[in-house]
Design a protein around this nucleic acid. Structure first.
Length: 710
DNA sequence: GTTCTAGAAC
DNA sequence: GTTCTAGAAC
């Protein structure tokens, strides 16, 4: 990046603290015809903002007179160098007009677009009416100009290099967007992605909701069903006014960039490959939370990109979460402005550099570090398999591009001149390619989950080696001191931590570090965007990190000192009811996808993790994470307290009954027919095929939630 | 020899 | 909560 931030001469600060203090600057391209309100947007957003801004307006860039694009670029560069974020106030209606400004982005600067898509009539009439407009576009001529410009308009896409795009279709949307930028402090960032776009796409975009609090101001329970775009815009408006976005500057949307596997040198059929890519991407998006998948190809005219793009849009896949991108996979951030924390490498069976194509490029860009780190994990790879390799912080790809992991993946080979040629056997080929994408996406999922598990450090912590870093963190956590969560939250938390060690009714239970994760998510859902499905004022919904059934989510209470069922009292009744309702809403959502799923909602009598959480779990128990007797018995014996019963008990007797932990050690019985089984594998194999009716007790009182048969 | 569990460590 | 692994069970 050619632009450097100059510090004044008497600079005593260490490199670490420069890094920590430095705000991520933003280049915001306003996109809209004359009269769409770009200048007003900038003025309002900049008014008493805590972030230094510069407005670059082509109408006045030349000493108060209209200037050129080049002058705008120069002024933008200068402002960025001075540490300011910039608004590019010019029409920027087509891709070409925008491209040079997008190139300003890079490791230090991210580029956003705000699209002012107001009705043409509104823009024209504003242009016509106004007097004294800086560009002197007024009077009747304006109508013709605006119309002409709108004809050649091209809406921006993330793959042009924007990290964030926001579409505004109404004054309310504009107010929203203005407000967001106005409230943005020097150290804050806005979530990446595409927001508010009106398209054929009718899928909901749950990712949006969780960035905003105060959802209770909305007709909450139905919010994600049948989401139409007007609705989406309304939600954002309602929310942002109440509470501005505030995210740590370190947050980025976890993103996997991957090349098309097997379609280059391995000569796999493009049609078949594109079907598989889209199928697998769709399958994994639901598991990935807000994380994104990006198919990358070097060439603009790439056939595989256009096939995938067309098929994804046909299937209405959320284009903010899965999209295609033209660029060099080793330079996505520095050259393309797209920050991906994980990249996939279509490798060879030896996991060695060379062979040309993506594999050679990635090994070359990463330097010897990648080979060393790879050797630790594996020496060879079978077709269909993947291996996740963390990149050391010394690696150039980590430094310059922000890539923390490379996932090597080996696809099937259809090229007779390469090893393991499948001889055109596409039955086998497709199977292996599917397997390859599954392994790849699963690898990515594990990275995302791991990263969300690690507590984020406060910005003062300066450690060069990432390995040491983690060690230090866990040491610190062991001693219950210095974790960021505590530093930021109120005293309640540190008090209760102390309390766990002393005497008294609550203090009998000392929580291990691992048991605090839910509490941390409940108190700071915005720090855990990867796992959070939804959050409201007093409730957070997350995917269970180790689901014990096909669908398994947790509804967390966002209240201090409600650690588990034992703490629940009558004053919590309303909260319990809300948790139950939110749980039912998710059941409904899951049953919309698969009507055969049957759910139970309930609490563990004695939870392993701190923070009251309601399990919403499908009764198939079909999951690799269900591994032992405790897992099974905690959901299928009376240790599991149905939410409906808890509600009733709290209401009538002021607290809930809890069962003994001894139940967890009992024999393994089928949850349907109650037959006993000697071990977990045999039990699981029985459960897979048992279709008996559920026990009578569960059929009563809505303990089981099933779709009525039609 | 392999499968599976239980308990320690994290 | 999970992971790891020794040793029991088969």
């Amino acid at each position: 990046m050619e632009v450097q931030i100059e510090e004044s001469g008497k600079n005593q600060t260490s490199p670490e603290s420069i890094e920590a203090d430095k705000a991520k600057q933003i280049v915001v391209l306003l996109i809209g015809p004359p009269g769409s309100g770009k200048s007003t947007f900038c003025d309002t957003a900049m008014r008493s903002s805590h972030r230094p801004w510069s407005r670059i307006c082509q109408d006045i860039v030349n000493n108060g007179k209209a200037g050129t694009k080049a002058q705008c670029l120069k002024m933008a560069t200068d402002s960025l160098r001075e540490g300011k974020s910039v608004f590019i106030d010019r029409c920027n209606l087509d891709r070409e007009q925008r491209s040079e400004f997008i190139k300003l982005g890079g490791p230090e600067f991210e580029v956003h677009a705000v699209v002012l898509e107001l009705p043409a009539q509104v823009c024209i009439s504003r242009s016509v009416k106004r007097t004294g407009h800086e560009g002197n576009l007024q009077g009747g001529r304006a109508a013709a100009v605006v119309n002409k410009m709108l004809q050649s308009k091209e809406l921006p896409k993330v793959n042009e290099g924007f990290s964030r795009i926001m579409f505004c279709y109404s004054d309310a949307d504009v107010d929203n967007a203005v407000n967001m930028y106005n409230k943005l402090g020097p150290m804050d960032t806005l979530p990446s992605g595409c927001f508010g776009e009106k398209k054929l796409d009718t899928k909901s975009q749950p990712g949006i909701m969780k960035f905003f609090k105060k959802v209770s101001a909305l007709p909450a329970s139905s919010s994600n069903e049948a989401t139409n775009t007007t609705r989406k815009a309304d939600e954002m408006t309602a929310n942002v006014r109440v509470s501005p976005v505030k995210l740590g500057s370190a947050d980025i949307v976890p993103t996997l960039a991957f090349p098309s596997i097997s379609t280059a040198d391995f000569q796999f059929d493009l049609e078949k490959a594109s079907d598989i890519i889209v199928e697998k991407a769709e399958e994994f998006l639901s598991k990935l939370g807000t994380a994104r998948l990006v198919l990358v190809d070097l060439s603009r005219g790439s056939k595989i990109l256009s096939l995938v793009k067309a098929k994804a849009s046909q299937k209405n896949i959320d284009s903010a979460k899965f999209f295609t991108f033209v660029g060099d996979i080793t330079k996505l951030r520095s050259e393309g402005g797209l920050h991906c924390n994980v990249i996939a490498n279509a490798t060879n069976w030896r996991l060695k550099p060379g062979g040309g194509g993506v594999n050679a490029a990635i090994f070359k860009a990463a330097g010897p570090d990648l080979e060393t780190a790879t050797r630790v994990r594996a020496n060879t790879l079978l077709p269909g398999k993947a291996v996740v390799v963390p990149l050391p912080s010394t690696c150039p790809l980590h430094n310059a591009e922000g890539i923390t992991h490379v996932i090597h993946v080996l696809g099937p080979n259809m090229n007779p001149n390469r090893p393991d040629n499948l001889n055109n056997d596409y039955t086998k080929g497709c199977k292996t390619l599917r397997e390859a994408y599954t392994s790849l996406f699963e690898g990515f999922l594990s990275v995302v989950q791991d990263q969300s598990k690690l507590p984020k450090r406060s910005s003062q912590t300066a450690v060069s080696d990432s390995g040491e870093d983690i060690k230090e963190d866990s040491e610190r956590n062991k001693k219950y001191k210095g974790s960021q969560d505590k530093a930021v939250t109120n005293n309640l938390e540190s008090e209760s931590l102390e309390d766990t060690r002393g005497s008294g009714k609550k203090m009998s239970k000392g929580w291990n570090t691992w048991a605090l994760a839910l509490h941390s998510i409940a108190m700071h859902p915005e720090r855990h965007e990867n796992v959070v499905l939804e959050y409201l004022d007093n409730i957070v919904v997350i995917n269970d990190q180790y689901p014990k059934a096909r669908k398994h989510v947790l509804v967390l209470a966002r209240q201090e000192s409600l650690d588990g069922l034992e703490d629940v009292r009558k004053e919590n009744l309303q909260l319990l009811q809300e948790m139950h309702n939110v749980g039912l809403k998710w059941v409904d959502r899951f049953q919309n996808e698969d009507a055969s799923l049957i759910f139970r909602l309930g609490y563990h009598s004695v939870p392993s993790m701190r923070q009251l959480h309601l399990h919403v779990i499908s009764q198939d128990f079909n999951s690799d994470s269900l591994k032992n007797k405790k897992h099974w018995n905690s959901f299928t014996t009376s240790f599991f307290r149905d939410s409906v019963d808890v509600l009733e008990e709290v209401n009538s007797q002021g607290k809930a009954n809890v069962a003994s932990e001894d139940l967890l050690k009992g024999e393994l019985r089928c949850n349907r027919c109650r037959s006993a089984h000697p071990n977990i594998p045999k039990l699981k194999s029985h459960v897979r095929s048992c279709h008996s009716q559920f026990p009578d007790h569960l059929l009563q009182n809505n303990r089981l939630v099933a779709r009525a048969e039609t």
